[in-house]
Design a protein around this nucleic acid. Structure first.
Lengths: 218, 218
DNA sequence: TATAGTACTGACTAGTCAGTCAGTAATTCA
DNA sequence: TGAATTACTGACTGACTAGTCAGTACTATA
C-alpha cells in the first residue's frame, strides 16, 4: 500500500518526513470516508506507524484535520497569482488560471480538499473561515482581475465581477468533486478531456464580445 | 423548533406522518453534520420523539439514510420531465429546466441532498448507484434533449451533448452546495439573484449561434 | 369498565474509537 | 560499551452511541 516500508531496512526514525506522511494519509481517508467516519488507527496504519506516533505529531484528530487543510492549501496559493504577470492576452490568462487550477489542484490528490471542506465546513467553522479567506477569496480575486482586464480591453462583455468567478470555477470544482464521489461507483461517465473542452467552449464563447463564428471553439 | 408539539393536545399516535417527520429531521442533520457525525438521539429529538420510536419505522441508521435519499428524490423526478412538452423555444425550455431545478430543489431543503450524496457516495455505493440512475442520468438526459433540439433548429452551437449537461448544471449545484457549507460561516458572499443572472448571462450567450450584441443578456 | 391492541418511551448493553502512557527499540554521545 | 536520548509502540480506558426491550400510556372495542 505505502511504498516506504519495504524499501528502507530500518524504517523508523523519520521525524522530518512523518508529519507530511501522516497528513497525506489522513487527506486520502478524510476525502474518501469523511472526517467523522475516519479512524485514526487507519490513518496511522496507512502511514505505516502506530496510533501513538500520530499523537507525537498532532495533538488531536481536529488538529490533524487542520494540518491537512493547511498543508494542502499553502502550496496552491502562490502558484496562481504568479500567472497574472505571465500572460498578456486576457483569454490566454483566464485559460491559464483555470487550466492551471485543474492541472495543479483538481487533477491531483489536492482535488479532494474541496470535497472535504464542503463536507466539513459547518463542523469546523474556524477552518472554513480560514479556507475562505486564504483560498476562495484569493482565487476569486484572481479570476476577477483577469476578467476585468478583458473587459477594459473590450475582449469580454461586461459581466458581473462579483459573481462571475464562482460561476466560472463551478464546473471545475464539480469535476473534482465528482472524481472523489460518484466516479468510484458509477464510472467516470464523462471523460475529463471532453468535459474540459466543452467547458471552455461554452464558457469562453459566453464571454467574448465577438465570438468566433467558425462553428468550432478555439 | 417543530411546530407539531404545541398545537395538538394529544401529540402521540401519528403512524402515518411519522416517517416523513423523521426523514425530514434526518435530512436536516445529515446535511449539516454528515451521516457519521449525526446522532440518532438528535434526529429523534428534532422530530419530537424518542430514539426507540425511530426504530419502529426504520431498521437501522443506514436504512434511515436510504429513506432520506429516496423520499427526497422521488418527488423531484417527474416534475422536470413534464417541462419538455411545455416549451417550444429551446432557450425558454433550457431556462425553464435550470430555473425549475433551482426553484424546486436548489433553493428548498432538498438542496442539501446533493451535498449529502457527494459526501457519502463512497460510503454507500448502492445508494450512489441508485441516485445516479434515478436522478443524475435522468436530469442529464433532460438537458441533453433541450440542447439537441436547439442545435437542430440552429439556435445553439454544436456542443458536445455528452458533457454539456454536467457543465451547465455545475454552477447551480455549486450554489446549492455553498448554501449548505460555507454560507453559514462566511456570509452568503454572493447574493443568489445576481449569481443566477450572471450564470444565465454567461452560459446562454455561450450557446447561442447568433448572440445578442446589445450588451445585455436575454 | 374490562380487555386487547398499538404507539411510544428511556434505561440499558455491547461495541467502537479518540486519546494516554508505561515500556521498547533504535540512535547518539561519552 | 554503555548511558542517555529520541522515536515509536500497542494495550488500555473512558466516553460515547447504535441498537434493544421491558414497560408505560394512550386508544379502540366489547
Amino acid at each position: 500500500m505505502n511504498e516506504n516500508t519495504a524499501s528502507q531496512r530500518q524504517r523508523r526514525r523519520r521525524k522530518e518526513t512523518r508529519p507530511q506522511e501522516l497528513t497525506s494519509a489522513a487527506l486520502a481517508l478524510f476525502v474518501e470516508k469523511g472526517f467523522a467516519a475516519t479512524k485514526l488507527d487507519d490513518v496511522a496504519a496507512r502511514a505505516g506507524v502506530s496510533k501513538g506516533t500520530l499523537y507525537l505529531y498532532f495533538d488531536s484528530k481536529e488538529a490533524l484535520f487542520k494540518a491537512v487543510i493547511q498543508e494542502g492549501v499553502v502550496p496552491a496559493i502562490a502558484a496562481g497569482e504568479a500567472l497574472l504577470d505571465e500572460h498578456d492576452d486576457p483569454v490566454e490568462l483566464l485559460r491559464a488560471i483555470l487550466d492551471g487550477w485543474w492541472e495543479r489542484i483538481g487533477s491531483t490528490e489536492l482535488g479532494g480538499i474541496p470535497k472535504l471542506m464542503m463536507s466539513e465546513a459547518r463542523n469546523f467553522p474556524d477552518v472554513a473561515v480560514y479556507y475562505h479567506q486564504v483560498v476562495i477569496q484569493r482565487g476569486m480575486g484572481l479570476i476577477r482581475v483577469a476578467i476585468s482586464r478583458g473587459i477594459e480591453r473590450g475582449i469580454f462583455r461586461e459581466v458581473d465581477l462579483e459573481t462571475v468567478g464562482s460561476v466560472l470555477i463551478a464546473p471545475l470544482l464539480h469535476l473534482a468533486l465528482w472524481r472523489h464521489s460518484f466516479a468510484s461507483c458509477c464510472g467516470p461517465d464523462t471523460d475529463v478531456e471532453r468535459y474540459l473542452q466543452t467547458y471552455f467552449d461554452v464558457v469562453l464563447d459566453g464571454l467574448r464580445v465577438q465570438p468566433l463564428r467558425s462553428g468550432d471553439a478555439r
